[in-house]
Design a binder for these strands. Structure first.
Length: 346
DNA sequence: TATCCGTGGTC
DNA sequence: TGACCAAGGAT
């Protein structure tokens, strides 16, 4: 097939040299695929190198504490990836006798591995001819074949899956999937695509119809909510108070300074907090931290007359004392990491 | 199934 | 500078 020949010969000449290329170690490929979910290569590369430096095998990862895994993941975001990675390593170690599943169907049963990741691992490591339907595949295929289905619609994924099953190279399925991803990341990009040097430019339908930038069609926009978070710095000699975040919310199982949340940005919300909780707070600084779907308006405070207020605070939000020297083992969200580094380590 | 889950880069 | 995007998955 023309598409396969063109993209594979382009891949053979232009593929990026990456740390997880030139290996078919399932643990390494799995780790790289989890790290790269919704994450650029430039951002994930060093995390991959740090992980394999720390964990050489699935068993090494399974035997580690979740906190250590989350600390290595600190700064990468989407922390459920790290929790599921750790959970699945323990599952493989205990329930599968350390044997990595070797088919798309079996891989998909693992926590944190969906259609895309199962196909990527199965094709790259085990030569199974299943298409890796990700954002790149949506873009490259929608443009090349002029597919106008809305990729925001979850039913659209099935159309691309079926098309991928037909097109995927039977002899080199792993290279085919990686070729589509490399082309999508470097040539067939969302903005400023390099159609003039694209190996597919003579047969690309979107280019012929002059609608490259109109594809893929994506209608849904994410809804962003505002949250107002108030973090309280409590220091006692060489220790500070930290709270482990629980429940299904952002930064689950990471640690922050003890926190209060208000539901609106009232002009006098500092005073409101102080009155309702009988805490005397001193403002330190503020910042806006943007998540994919939340704007976090963050303020930092210290407690006045600390000894009188700590007991009251403990009734509202639980916390534990952590020595500053032990912070290096505590997973922290980006804004808390920045705050602590600024005040204690820089 | 629509929504939730991070961070950094780009224009 | 705000909006969009980046090798998605769980619920």
């Amino acid at each position: 097939m023309k598409f396969n020949y063109l993209i594979l010969s382009w891949f053979d000449r232009n593929k990026r040299e990456l740390p997880w290329r030139n290996t078919r170690n399932p643990f390494h490929i799995w780790l790289s695929e989890i790290i790269l979910q919704q994450t650029r290569v430039d951002q994930g590369k060093n995390f991959y190198l740090n992980f394999i430096k720390e964990f050489d095998t699935v068993k090494d990862l399974a035997l580690a504490d979740e906190q250590k895994v989350l600390k290595l993941w600190q700064g990468l975001g989407y922390y459920s990836r790290a929790r599921n990675l750790h959970y699945t390593a323990q599952f493989i170690d205990k329930e599968l006798n350390g044997v990595f599943p070797d088919s798309f169907i079996e891989l998909k049963k693992l926590k944190g591995i969906g259609d895309y990741t199962a196909a990527a691992i199965a094709s790259i490591v085990y030569n199974e001819a299943v298409p890796a339907v990700d954002g790149n595949m949506f873009r490259v295929f929608s443009r090349y074949y002029n597919i106008e289905n809305d990729i925001s619609n979850s039913q659209t994924k099935k159309i691309f899956w079926e098309l991928g099953l037909e097109i995927i190279d039977q002899k080199r399925p792993g290279d085919f999937n990686q070729a589509v991803m490399d082309l999508g990341a470097t040539i067939c990009t969302p903005k400023l695509p390099k159609c003039d040097i694209c190996p597919l430019n003579e047969s690309c339908e979107a280019l012929r119809l002059n609608k490259v930038l109109a594809l893929p069609v994506k209608t849904k926009k994410i809804k962003v909510t505002n949250r107002f978070l108030h973090f309280i710095l409590i220091k006692d000699e060489d220790r500070i108070a930290l709270s482990k975040r629980e429940g299904n919310d952002v930064w689950k199982n990471l640690y922050t300074l003890p926190m209060l949340e208000t539901i609106s940005d009232l002009l006098d919300h500092e005073a409101l907090i102080e009155q309702s909780l009988h805490l005397e707070l001193s403002f330190i600084s503020e910042e806006k931290h943007i998540l994919s779907h939340q704007n976090l308006f963050i303020k930092y405070y210290t407690l006045q007359s600390q000894s009188e207020n700590i007991t009251r605070l403990r009734n509202i939000t639980d916390f534990e004392w952590v020595k500053l020297n032990d912070i290096e083992n505590i997973p922290l969200p980006k804004p808390i990491e920045k705050f602590i580094n600024y005040h204690f380590f820089d």
